[in-house]
């Protein structure tokens, strides 16, 4: 039957940690001298930032991220394959070998196109 044990344990820990952080914030906010505007300035060495840090960040590794989206899908096929591998034997080996071989061509192409470099 379905085992929700791990989820229950994880949720309990998460809730406890969340409450701790929130409680700590509340305690800090109650202090009279806390949270003036200069106290909240992000730290980069003592000068206030001129703009918000949130911006259109140039994610230089975006080709790799796109490769990941497609390549990651292989895991969905490999998990059930691993379970039946011993039972199915050579057939499983050959079929998965073919599948993976095809996918590795994609990585090879990405490498050739310098998708893993950005400096």
């Amino acid at each position: 039957m379905v085992d929700l044990g791990p989820l229950a344990i994880a949720s309990a820990v998460m809730v406890a940690a969340l409450l701790a952080v929130l409680g700590s914030w509340l305690r800090a906010a109650r202090r009279p001298s806390s949270r003036t505007a200069p106290e909240r300035v992000p730290f980069t060495g003592g000068q206030p930032p001129s703009v918000h840090a949130w911006s259109r960040y140039h994610v230089r590794y975006y080709p790799m991220a796109l490769l990941f989206l497609a390549f990651d899908m292989e895991m969905v096929f490999m998990y059930p394959w691993a379970v039946v591998f011993v039972g199915e034997g050579l057939v499983a080996m050959v079929e998965m070998g073919m599948f993976i071989g095809i996918l590795l061509l994609g990585v090879l192409y990405a490498w050739r196109e310098r998708a893993f470099r950005w400096t």
Binding site: E95, M98, A115
Partner: peptide, 16 residues
């Protein structure tokens, strides 16, 4: 299954 492999390859190459 094998078609999915080829499709994913096409996706990788195409996307890059």
């Amino acid at each position: 299954f094998q078609t999915a492999g080829v499709t994913l390859l096409g996706t990788m190459v195409g996307a890059i």
